[in-house]
Design a protein around this nucleic acid. Structure first.
Lengths: 135, 135
DNA sequence: TTGAATGCAAAGCTTTTGCAATTCA
DNA sequence: TGAATTGCAAAAGCTTTGCATTCAA
């Protein structure tokens, strides 16, 4: 089931702004400002308010994941359920890379087993210097 | 070496506001607002601006760690170097618990070895329901 | 047609900046 | 005393809210 069908199925309307925002959301986590600029570049005029509201809806439907990388603002990324991953951010240039960790499952499972909390989600973010910025 | 001495050693002044902020910072990560309220309760009047500026200094000196738990604001916690840990936050009541994970080192070491980035730090945050909120 | 969604303006929070007054060493 | 630090006011982000208008079904 694609993203548009998923909207419809839940009784929400397929609107131009929503379609455009979904089109622009890639694997790379974007800020609201970046989404807005990206749409403007495509000559699509959408108010930031509508972007915020659309993202809220997408979050609720599980279409989009909200992440914080310590920048003081949120980032949004299209939620590919088949590809659980985390991020590493370059302290110098801000470049963001995806990472998948083989040993991760063990760690999370053990956390779930041992914690008194009922764990529902986690975030693991790395910070460092990317290849270019190490020189 | 205690926190006050650490300030002095680096050529910074020991001032009333700085002392009071350090006194109030506990293991529990606090927001600037919480620090401010906590000081007011002790009849200590400090401007939030000064709190921000002191925290910036403490961060620079490695006395305090800044964390984000997805609340849209930052939290600050006194940095106990002997006790590396992470957090789990209750989605319902906001309660924050510390956690230490035995298997963590392996995961991080492998990340450091395999990543093209030069990893300098990481954050691992869990979200779920605390014991009280599970009922 | 009609409720849902959008745009615009305004406000709400958190955080930062500028500058004169104060304070520590 | 003199530079570092503080308080106050203002501004700068990011995000949310209210309301009239527009739009999808």
């Amino acid at each position: 089931m694609n993203k548009i069908q998923r909207l419809k199925k839940n009784g929400y309307r397929i609107t131009k702004p929503r379609e455009e925002i979904l089109n622009v959301l890639s694997q790379r986590p974007l800020t609201v400002e970046e989404i807005h600029t990206s749409l403007q570049n495509k000559k699509i005029s959408i108010d930031v308010t509508s972007i915020y509201r659309s993202l809220d809806l997408f979050k609720k439907l599980g279409l989009v994941t909200e992440i914080e990388l310590g920048e003081g603002k949120k980032r949004y990324e299209f939620n590919d359920k088949n590809r659980h991953h985390h991020h590493v951010v370059c302290e110098d240039c801000g470049m963001i890379s995806d990472i998948s960790l083989a040993q991760e499952k063990k760690l999370i499972d053990s956390m779930k087993k041992n914690s008194k909390f009922k764990i529902t989600s986690h975030s693991l973010e790395f910070s460092g210097l990317c290849q270019d910025c190490q020189c």
